[in-house]
Nucleic acid binder design. Structure first.
Lengths: 333, 333
DNA sequence: GGGCCACAGGCAAACAATTGCAAGATTATT
DNA sequence: AATAATCTTGCAATTGTTTGCCTGTGGCCC
């Protein structure tokens, strides 16, 4: 009574052919109820379950969605980043609801093949990419002839891939406008504009400053991987001591690090410096002071991503979605 | 110049057999350098990459680890739970470093086959289960003849599966002892002891109370899914207004919810009630007040899990690991 | 009792790779 | 030049399913 390893062995045991076993286990009515039940009982008794790899190969379908997180800009950035993690959790929930498993890959693109490699591997039915990083061109190249692909990130009129994200330019504008309205006459942007989303947020900040007749923002390409960036802050504050100051952080995580660095320097928000985050993550609610931020509706975003991906898998075409960012005022700005 | 779909088409194009192509793409020196390079160039030119499903089927290896999160106790608990997410992120990092992909399944066990189903599916080389939930028996049953399986969770002398986790009983003891040392004469435990880890933490709390000659703790099986549990807290506080009060939460998330519910009731920690968390998640550093907690070293835990799983895949045997919990005093207790 | 039809199940071809073995083509050795 | 040794490559089995098509048997009707 050794373990049954495949359908063939079960077929021999039952005295039928493999085809019959396959159909019986699938519950096909082509097989008489009697044999069907007999085979199912036999399978259960021996704890046999058909090999999914073989099945997937045969039916050319895996019921698995690949979720990719390209880290072109921040090679050392970890998956523990709260934004990724939040998005990942939401996607996992939505995909599970639809019966999909989730194949997770953290990718550090060394060549341009990283995306095509998984798209053509046959292991997934579709792909969700979280963030364009600095790989927009590569993504576009693959999207041209790989349809079941959706991307969380910034929208650009020229892009060929299908994206979901918020209006980053508007969000950046909202953040900066709020700071200006609070009287800030000197504004810095903390974030690395190499990635599309952040570049767009910076552009929004520029829009707001220009409308207010203020010059260029001071840009610090603060890297998420730096544990602290006291020097950056000090550098900025030193040259800007002539009025109320504001910082637009490119993400909530950067904002939190900024707050922490400020605390070390004996500064606090909003009195010494006003700090705006971006993302609207729940961690921002627990900080001291609570973080004012630009909220992106990630729940709805995840729903869109999954919904559109499923439709693309089914052969439909879908348009990119740009969601409204929302100014959430808590305490830091 | 249509797209090359498989090795056969590339073989025809190159005028060689499929075997040669396979070896050439694998870089085998059995094939002459000339043909090898010619075939590789051809593959690159046509953007061809061999189908991994077929490959995995043939070589009986997938380079994929399944990560399962059984939610037997909390059917509505989402993957967005910070503990799971933190652990997941750490595992993803470690597994990626070792060249493994990660197949994520959120499982709501309706039958006892959930674990065996994926173990025998052929889609993964090994499994990591995060939390025993109330499925310790099922896990043991599978672990008996499925070797490449490691579990994050509580250790029990009788278990057959290999686990990594902290000494929950000791952790619970540490938490309660600290509260007692602070003068608390009435202590409650918030958490559902149906899951093994939490049951052990509760046991530790009992140990501490017994040593101090105090009776049974008041146990509230607070569900993670409840948005607020004001009523539970009110119920406890009502009957316990005769001295300093302490609450040991079974997790940081429960502790945070407790703090929030208290805030709504106009109470604050540590003055009105002392609150201890469990896990040592970073969110606890950002709360008001910062959360005192029992810290489990999740980074080292994830390393252990991955390391031991890899060794088990290689055929080695491994012993369960029980790590020391650490009392981290911040502000709430 | 013979013909027809429906039902049950078997056969074998996919699916897309890897790999042991054998054979053909070169090169080296005596 | 003949034989041995070495390099390349091809053949075909293997991995474990699914599924279109075909066959065989039994029942039913005339």
């Amino acid at each position: 009574m050794s373990r049954i390893r495949n359908i063939k062995e079960l077929a021999d045991l039952a005295g039928v052919s493999t085809g019959t076993v396959s159909r019986a286990l699938a519950g096909s009515t082509l097989i008489s109820l009697k044999t069907r039940e007999r085979i199912q009982a036999l399978a259960k008794e021996h704890g046999f379950r058909p090999n999914l790899l073989a099945r997937n190969l045969r039916i050319q379908r895996t019921n698995t969605i690949g979720v990719l997180i390209p880290l072109g800009h921040e090679t050392a950035q970890h998956l523990t980043d709260p934004f990724f993690i939040t998005m990942l959790g939401l996607l996992a929930d939505k995909l599970t609801e639809r019966g999909y498993d989730l194949l997770l890959s953290r990718v550090i693109p060394t060549d341009s093949a990283w995306l095509d490699r998984i798209a053509t591997s046959g292991r997934v039915d579709g792909l969700i990419v979280i963030g364009q990083s600095d790989q927009a061109a590569t993504i576009d190249a693959v999207a041209k002839d790989y349809r079941p692909l959706v991307v969380w990130g910034g929208y650009d009129a020229d892009q060929v891939h299908c994206s979901v994200g918020s209006d980053n330019r508007k969000g950046g504008d909202l953040a900066a406008s709020h700071l200006i309205a609070q009287g800030c006459r000197k504004i810095a942007f903390f974030g690395d504009p190499k990635t599309r989303e952040i570049e767009q947020r910076l552009q929004g900040v520029r829009d707001a400053l220009e409308r207010a007749g203020m010059g260029e923002p001071h840009v610090e390409p603060a890297h998420l991987t730096d544990d602290e960036f006291g020097p950056e802050i000090a550098g900025f504050l030193g040259q800007a001591a002539d009025g109320p100051i504001g910082i637009v952080a490119a993400s909530d995580v950067i904002a939190l690090k900024t707050l922490r660095a400020m605390a070390v320097m004996g500064l606090s928000a909003p009195n010494d410096v006003r700090v705006m985050g971006y993302d609207g993550l729940t961690i921002g609610e627990h900080t001291v002071p609570q973080l004012s931020t630009i909220c992106q509706d990630l729940v709805r975003g995840a729903e869109h991503l999954v919904d559109m991906l499923v439709r693309r898998i089914a052969g439909e075409d879908t348009q990119s979605v740009v969601m409204e960012p929302e100014l959430v005022l808590r305490a830091s700005a």
